[in-house]
Simulated assay, not measured.
Amino acid sequence: MSSGSGDGRRPDPATDAFVAHRNLLFTVAYEMLGSAVDAEDVLQETWLRWSGVELATVRDHRAYLVRITTRQALGRLRALGRRKESYVGPWLPEPLLTSPDVADQVELADSISMAMMMVLETLAPTERAVFVLREVFALGYDEIAEAVDKTQAAVRQIAHRARAHVAARRPRGGAVSADEARTAIAAFQRAVETGDLQGLLDLLAPDVVALSDGGGIKQAMPRPTVGAERVGRLLAAGVALWGPTGTAEPAQVNGHPALVLRVDGEIDVVVAMRLDEGRITGIYSVRNPEKLTHMDRETAVSL
């Protein structure tokens, strides 16, 4: 794809339109799938279909592209659901290294947070598509109806049901300031690096939940761990396994504070967190190497 600008070739309106909305389309696909790899594949499929469209017949390029992306993502989401049935251990979304300014965009950061992505995982495919398009991207019911091949009346019912479902499962806590996030992540990093169990316990909420995704490739917790003492001891024990070549560095992952842990310079685990009033309420550790391919560069997301 090339818009032709600056190289002497004529501009390509189809390419220009696709590039202008690419970050938005990626974000739509990622929020529906929880997988950056699959979202990138959906974008390729979207481009192939978009490049064959007669642009003169398209009134709203953005809406048309979102419709194509949604339909492709829905098909892939159903296939992904079948793959998850045989997945080894807990399934977590693929973490994205995001730019610091994403954290300042509260709605965007909340929508792609690990905690929210886990809530979206509990929705049926069409419910997830409708919720994402309506609640995150504020599309009209008419646009959503076209994207999911439902009537507007049906879409309104689905949206109502999905909102109630998400509200009942949405993690507690409001927005956390950048200073609070930095303070918490720095304290967590110190505690982890020193194996300080008490330091960890002081940071964890009493009902903290920890999940770990190794995909059957790397060792991980086979099920969620709940409670500050159990999670703290588990983390402290995990520190001992890194050895002298283990390092930890703070990062912005899915718009929120996280730690990237490396062994011999290679990423071993990405630890994303959910904070509430200075305490850590959720820990999401991704070790599956197949899910860490987007951690070597920032991924652009947008609403």
Rank of each mutant, 00 (worst) to 15 (best):
I267V: 15
R128E: 12
T57N: 12
F131H: 14
P257M: 05
V253F: 10
A168H: 08
T225N: 15
G81E: 09
P13T: 03
A167I: 02
P95K: 05
I144E: 03
R163L: 14
V166L: 09
G89D: 07
L48S: 13
A153F: 02
E180F: 10
L203Y: 12
A147V: 04
R82N: 09
V102Q: 01
V37Y: 07
W47I: 13
D213R: 08
Q44S: 08
P90V: 07
L234Q: 13
R10G: 01
V226Y: 11
T245V: 02
V209E: 13
A186D: 15
T293A: 09
M295R: 02
A175W: 04
V42L: 03
A248V: 11
V42F: 01
L55K: 01
L120R: 15
V209N: 08
N288E: 14
A178D: 08
L197C: 06
G255W: 00
A162K: 02
D202H: 12
L261N: 08
M114P: 00
T126S: 15
G216V: 14
P222K: 08
L200E: 05
E135Y: 13
L33C: 06
K84G: 10
V301E: 01
S35K: 10
R10C: 02
G81L: 07
L65A: 03
L43N: 06
L80T: 13
R76F: 02
Q198D: 14
P289A: 09
R9S: 13
M1T: 04
V155Q: 06
T281E: 01
L120Q: 15
G52D: 13
G75C: 08
V102D: 00
P222A: 11
V130R: 05
I217F: 07
Q72S: 05
V176K: 02
S212H: 06
R182F: 14
P222R: 07
V176L: 08
L65K: 01
A14E: 11
F26L: 14
V28Q: 11
S35V: 12
S5H: 14
Q157M: 06
D101N: 00
L203N: 12
E127T: 00
H21G: 00
A129V: 01
V58E: 14
V270R: 04
R59G: 12
I112N: 00
E180N: 10
V19D: 07
L235H: 03
V253S: 07
I267T: 15
Y87T: 02
S3I: 09
H165L: 11
A220I: 14
S302Q: 01
M273C: 13
A109M: 01
R163S: 14
V271E: 13
K150N: 13
D104C: 05
